[in-house]
Amino acid sequence: MSDLNDDFVVTSNTPSLGARLQQARENKKLSIAEVATQLRLTRDIIIYLENQQWDRLHGRTYARGYSASYVKFLGLPQEEMLAVFNDEYVLIDNEPRLVKTLGAVEQKPFPWLMIVLLLVGVFIIWSAYQQWQISQTSSSNEVDEVGSVSPDKTELDKPADKETITIQESVPESSDLLPENDAAEVSESDNNAIDSTEDIQINDTATATSQPAEEAKQNILKMSFSGDCWVEVTDTAMNVLLSQVMKAKQSVELKSELPMKILLGKADFADVTYNSKPVDLAPYTQGNVAKLTLGAQS
């Protein structure tokens, strides 16, 4: 019995917000209608506030706002009453509260897990790449082994940049100042009464040295001219080996693999030999212009 009395005392000492509002209103001898008129609220809202039917008050914001207005109107201590409201509203509040107090930035824990995962990912990708590379090299070795059966073919497939171009120009001039050893390089056709000789030698040494001597001998295109003639020589890879006007009494030597395209502006003045064999230009000459592909012919 005494326990019950104690409970009763406790509850009566801490009345709810609604009860306190109602009590304060009645102490001021105000009716619900008067309060509603003053606050421009409906009578229902005042009744809901006093009965603490928070769920009928359009959400927490409005419930709190109406309570604050009512409390202020009745002259009750605002902060204390709103604290009571916060406590009592929590009981029915299912929504997460948006309000968070002002505070310092919390230090986010350093994302070790993310970094470890990132490193593991990078390691996996790297090892996969390594594996792929190993498999690539082993497969290419297999191909090499198969390819070694016909080594000649692979040699034939080498690019056609292994050429040696030698242009010997022999122009009769009156100067006697040139060295004597130049005379040795004078073309056979012009070895009489030549005072000066100018040699232009363009050697693709990097490839020429690697080329076997015998092979080089075999692929010599020699052209000598008795008059001015436009010459253009291109190889299989469409590299232009020679493209210029050759003067009279000049001769040129080209080393390249077949086929070669030759264009001669004035075929009459040109004398072409390939590996010391004369090339007959007549079938390819039209209007004194010779156009032939040397590889296709042989």
């Binding site: 421009r40 709190r64 604050a68 207005s69 968070k100």
Partner: peptide, 25 residues
């Protein structure tokens, strides 16, 4: 200010909780 708006508009006016931070929140 809420009182002024109540009187001028005839509508209830309430102040939001922590009005300074409403926009940021």
């Amino acid at each position: 200010l809420d009182r002024l708006l109540i009187e001028e508009t005839g509508l209830p006016a309430i102040i939001a909780e922590d009005p300074l931070t409403c926009v940021a929140r």
